[in-house]
Design a protein around this nucleic acid. Structure first.
Lengths: 236, 236
DNA sequence: CGCATGATTGAAGTACGTCAACTCTTGTGG
DNA sequence: CCACAAGAGTTGACGTACTTCAATCATGCG
């Protein structure tokens, strides 16, 4: 098994709605296992697509990206995982994608064998894992409809909102979101080119939907409008 | 929990490679539960996106599609599920997508509550379910890279090959594959328009990669070339 | 047989990609 | 601390692959 899951807020949280309360659950607490700390420098690779999966990872700080390659070098980024997110699932098999550090990152490594055993004893842990799968699956479906049917502006708006909501859940009410990844990474996540990403962001800026302190810090000025674009994408 | 999984060949089958042996496992056998048979007429809806999930479904005959909608009617088809495929997972939550019959279809319905209980007793069933999740997850990732980074010809070639491989697994060595869904459905699965789907198929025909008995039966003439296109997409 | 639906083909438009120049940022070493 | 280089980000001009619009052709069901 090999999946990556974002931090979950409560079990089996339906829809993309925001959780009212933050469950400060992490793998360490719920599994009673001690993850081994590992430091990753920017761009270093935690896992290759062909590798055998031996660990589940929990991001402590920093950000990593999960990505797949085509033969000619084209990339599709499956997801970004920041502090609190968990990557991988306790069932042995080869990897589906590579994992690479977006910037200097610290992760905790849990051997799959240990987690597997722990799941046998703890139904709470099993439920927790299923909850993670649930979140990740929902994320995949949203990503698919983005890639298949949304226009660049809608994809970008949805992307920004995802980050906004993610940090809302952690209690940060600031309208400034941090995008640690490069424009190329965003492009490879959204199925666009870096130029298109820039132009869409430029468009949002000119229309006062967002403002940019620098290229990695975006302030959301018009949340409702962005949500409108993200969902139906009528405006241009 | 709410996921859809294609028929699995052995547990945790890695990669998209073909299984050597067919495991004739189905939910009925492994869970010792009796699914309730339900008949669906073409285009009838088994499940709405907002519905609460109460059952896991196993397709007996026919084909259904899982799809998501945008506000303005745009559709993204997540997957097609034919005989032997299982849809849904035993964890209660609302649905992520709608399920609709592509043609007249028979499904077996298993109440989630029963499956949930059965999983508590049977680790084999739990493993089976995890195997299904595994397959489905891999399918999602391939779908994402298709939607995000592949060109129409590559997407279509990959789509045809998926069907070819699927029936190979069931023991059918014929080069003729059946595509029960419409061109529009294929388009909504591949993130294209129906016209583009037609044109790509036309291109394949003119280049003797495939031949068409009728619009729903495609004969594969040049498997290696199709595989080449599907993977690196250099030819045009 | 006839209408409705689906499939195909053609012509025209455009949104996004490609190519290229330029700017801004970041890091490094003198 | 500044100079410079290397990388990342942005913007513009241009091309084109795919979509859109429209017409025609098949298919199938009453």
């Amino acid at each position: 098994m090999n999946i990556a899951v974002s931090r979950i807020e409560g079990f089996a949280q339906p829809g993309g709605t925001l959780s009212s309360a933050v469950h400060k659950l992490n793998l360490q607490q719920i599994s009673n296992l001690n993850g081994v700390k590992r430091r990753l420098t920017k761009n270093s690779i935690l896992l290759h697509e062909e590798d055998e999966i031996k660990h589940v990872y929990e991001v402590v700080s920093g950000t990593v990206k999960a990505l797949k390659f085509l033969a000619d070098g084209r990339r599709q980024i499956i997801g970004f995982f920041g502090a609190g997110d968990i990557i991988g699932l306790p069932l042995e098999t080869s990897a589906f994608y590579s994992i690479q550090a977006v910037k200097n990152t610290v992760v905790l490594c849990y051997p799959i064998s240990q987690l597997d055993a722990a799941m046998g004893h703890s139904s709470a842990l099993t439920k927790f894992i299923f909850g993670l799968v649930h979140s990740e699956l929902e994320r995949h479906l949203d990503h698919m409809i983005s890639l298949g049917r949304k226009r660049p502006k809608e994809r970008m708006a949805a992307f920004l909102l995802t980050y906004y909501k993610k940090q809302l859940v952690t209690g940060v009410t600031d309208m400034v979101i941090e995008l640690p990844m490069s424009r190329v990474d965003i492009a490879d996540y959204l199925g666009l080119t870096q130029e298109t990403v820039c132009r869409v962001l430029g468009h949002f800026k000119r229309n006062n939907l967002i403002a940019a302190k620098n290229s990695h810090e975006i302030k959301i000025l018009d949340l409702p409008h962005l949500e409108y674009i993200a969902q139906s994408g009528v405006l241009h």
